[in-house]
């Protein structure tokens, strides 16, 4: 669509304004993390990297960071496998109404307020003694991550020609081989973006994690939340900056590599 020059200028201004409102609160964290004062002041009066040093020298912070990475990596594997299997299953279900219902059920975790989910998970984990354990974190985060995988793999499957599986069967391939050699390579972009979302979902999950953490096992966002309520120490800004960069890089790399694959 072509617009007159004044309209275009206005549109650009408006877009810039919306972008600023969206991004500014996030970007403010970066200068905050380089302050030389022991409190969160904006704009910072002097510059230093002491809060990054503090982050990496404090075993509480590095442990939380390590925990977050470990949990997120395992969740990525678990949720991607489960979500992909669910998406394939739902797409092959010949009773469409049941398939739709199953899909809605699987998507529920992103619709239900996480605080409600958190209370339920807490009650069950208490009984099963999963609170503050690695399997507990992986399980809880996977529940939240599966819907993202389901959505992105389902979208990829919509573009998959199911007649190729029939052809593969006629050529002697069993179902598993057909999935591995024919379906998976063709829906891989959807699986990869689902996996990235799963990682990010787990890595910055906070509400559920506060409920299921223990003094022995807590993730980075939980530690940050505790830190901001207790000591308001700029280390949190350093941590936030690193989380932001990590997730941004992951998503950007994922999207770019997928785009390259499509062009090829």
């Amino acid at each position: 669509m072509k617009h007159a020059a004044p309209t275009r200028t206005l549109l650009a201004l408006y877009t810039a304004m919306v972008a600023f409102v969206l991004i500014a609160p996030t970007v403010v964290v970066i200068p905050l993390s380089f302050t030389d004062k022991a409190s969160l002041t904006f704009p910072p009066s002097g510059w230093s990297t002491r809060w990054y040093e503090n982050f990496f020298n404090d075993p509480a912070w590095t442990a939380a960071f390590g925990n977050s990475l470990t949990v997120a990596l395992i969740v990525t594997v678990v949720a991607t496998a489960a979500g992909t299997a669910a998406a394939v299953g739902v797409s092959k279900w010949s009773r469409k109404r049941m398939a739709k219902a199953a899909q809605m059920f699987l998507l529920a975790p992103i619709v239900v307020p996480s605080i409600i989910l958190a209370i339920g998970v807490y009650a069950i984990f208490l009984r099963l003694q999963l609170l503050g354990t690695l399997p507990g974190f992986v399980l809880a985060h996977s529940v939240l991550a599966v819907p993202f995988v389901l959505v992105s793999v389902s979208a990829a499957l919509a573009g998959f020609d199911d007649r190729l599986t029939t052809a593969a069967a006629s050529l002697g391939a069993d179902r598993w081989t057909t999935f591995r050699r024919v379906m998976l390579p063709l829906i891989l972009p959807g699986v990869v973006s689902g996996a990235l979302f799963a990682f990010v979902t787990s890595f910055d999950e906070v509400v559920l994690s506060i409920f299921i953490k223990s003094p022995y096992l807590e993730t980075l966002p939980v530690k940050m939340y505790a830190s901001v309520t207790r000591d308001t120490d700029p280390t949190i800004a350093a941590a936030a900056t690193m989380i932001m960069l990590l997730t941004t890089v992951i998503i950007a790399v994922g999207l770019l590599s997928m785009r390259r694959k499509k062009i090829a």
Partner: peptide, 19 residues
């Protein structure tokens, strides 16, 4: 099952594996 019948099939829509 189809994959054990040992029959060759040619489809109207070719059904070649695009990758």
């Amino acid at each position: 099952p189809a994959h054990k019948r040992g029959l060759g099939v040619v489809f109207q829509h070719y059904a070649l594996f695009p990758h």
